[in-house]
Structure formats: C-alpha cells, structure tokens
Amino acid sequence: MSQTAHIPSHRKPRRGASKLAFRAGVAGGVFSTIAVAGAAAPANAEPVTETTLEMPTLGSLDADLAGAVSASAEASQQEALDQHLAAQEKAALEKAAKDAKKAKAEADRKAEAEKAEKARAEARERASRTAERTSLSTSSYSASDSGSSSSSRVATGSAAAIVAFARAQVGDAYVSGGTGPNSWDCSGLVQAAYRQAGIDLPRVSSSQSSMGTSVSLSDLQPGDILYWGSRSGSYHVAIYVGGGKYVGAQNPSTGVVERDMDWDPPSGAVRIL
C-alpha cells in the first residue's frame, strides 16, 4: 500500500470545463488587447500608465442570470393570474346578462298576465255597473212603447245578465274576428254576452241563428238573438235588449251601438233562454 494512501486529498474540486474556458477566454482577451496596444505604441512614446481593469466575476454573472430567471418566472405567474381573473370576470358578466334576460322575460310574462286580468276585471265591472241600470232602462222603454207586446217585457235572471253585458260594451270598436275585451265582431259580442249566463254559443253568426227556437219579431223578449239573412245562413246577429232596441257590433265605422229596431230591421229572431 502507498504510504500516502491514507492521507485524504485537500485539493479543491476542479472547476467545470465551461467555467474554466470562459475565464481563460476573458483573460486571454484582456492580455491580447494590452499586448497589441504595447506593440502599436511608438518607441519614443511616453510610458503608458497602467490601468487595472476590473472584470466581472463568475459570481456576479450567476447572480444576474438568477435574477433574470426569477423576474421571468414572476412575469409568467402574473400573466397567468391576470388571465385567470379575466376569465372569472367574463364568466361573471355572462351569468349576469343571462340572469337579467331571464328576469326580463319573467317580468314581461307577469305584465301580460296582469294586463289580461285587468281587462277581464274591467269588463266584469262594466257589466256590474249596468246590471241594475238595465232593469230601469228596460222598464222606461216599455212605458214609452206600450203599444208593442214585446217592448213591455223586462229582462230578468239570465236575460238581464246578457243585456247588461251587451250594453256595457257600447262604444267599443268593431274588429273582424274580435272577441273582446275591447273590440268585437257581431258574433263575438253575442257569444261573450251569453257566456255571462253560462251558455256557450257557436262562434259564427250562421250557427248562432240556428240555435234555439224561432220567434216572431212581434213577440220578442230581452236576450233574444236577432239575425239578418236566412236563419241558417245569417250574415249578422245582435241582441234584443227590450224597448224596441238591440245592441250589436255593427261595422268598423260605428263599432258597438244600441239602435232602434226600425234603424235596420232584422230578418228574424231566435230564443235560447
């Protein structure tokens, strides 16, 4: 065994080949620069004052590199955080817009329902306001037209409800195909009036005039349906309200009106009640 085998080595670890090459290159470059400068100087030139150049050490270069890497990592982390926050903000805005759209649709639906209910309530209120007045009005018509047997009859019960509803719509517009609450055609008004008495009539005038029993125009009762044309092919209907008068949705020019029988004499009448 060698006599020095037991003695541990105290030599410093060898530097990496890349670090040694880098230092050699830096030193060689410096010495070459100094040598060239000396050779180029003229013989009688003044002595050049020696200048000591302080070269960057490997430690400072490593520190600069580590700082740059750290700054790049922080920038990447900040960019990722910004993108995450932007995605969260976009999702929140989209959810808010969706919730607002849903709330608006629900509000519109409720508004339409309230509007329809209000219209129905107004129609019921108008019918109620005129219910009592109808009986008195019919009585006064009977007194003024006492010569006619049909004009002396007063609407009662279901007939009173039908007459009251019809008169409550006077002044509403005429619209072809209209079924209320504020616009009607002739058969739409008759159908709605009879619904107040719990009676469902067909939708069109020719079918309505085919219902019930045919009665003479000299023996009319309030609530009877008047028709124009043939009974099975009528083109217009109205409601007899007593006192020699009827209520009907006439045309777009007049709307719903109350007229004397002789203003436009009907062709016939039917009784449903």
Rank of each mutant, 00 (worst) to 15 (best):
185 D>G: 01
195 R>C: 02
237 V>K: 03
179 T>K: 06
182 N>L: 01
189 L>C: 05
221 Q>A: 14
227 Y>H: 05
169 Q>K: 14
225 I>Q: 04
172 D>T: 13
187 S>Q: 04
215 V>D: 05
207 S>R: 15
163 V>P: 11
216 S>P: 10
242 G>V: 11
173 A>W: 06
165 F>L: 05
203 R>N: 03
250 Q>I: 11
183 S>N: 13
163 V>M: 12
240 Y>P: 06
173 A>V: 13
167 R>L: 15
190 V>R: 00
163 V>E: 11
174 Y>I: 04
186 C>N: 12
161 A>Y: 01
241 V>I: 15
203 R>Y: 00
248 G>R: 03
178 G>S: 09
166 A>Y: 13
195 R>I: 06
166 A>C: 11
188 G>E: 05
221 Q>R: 15
168 A>T: 06
228 W>T: 11
249 A>L: 06
210 S>R: 06
220 L>S: 11
206 S>R: 12
168 A>F: 06
211 M>L: 14
196 Q>M: 12
218 S>M: 06
233 G>W: 04
176 S>C: 07
208 Q>H: 04
222 P>Y: 10
217 L>W: 07
188 G>L: 02
205 S>T: 00
194 Y>S: 07
184 W>A: 00
238 A>E: 10
177 G>S: 10
241 V>C: 09
172 D>W: 00
250 Q>D: 10
230 S>Y: 12
225 I>S: 00
209 S>G: 04
233 G>R: 13
175 V>M: 13
253 S>P: 05
241 V>P: 00
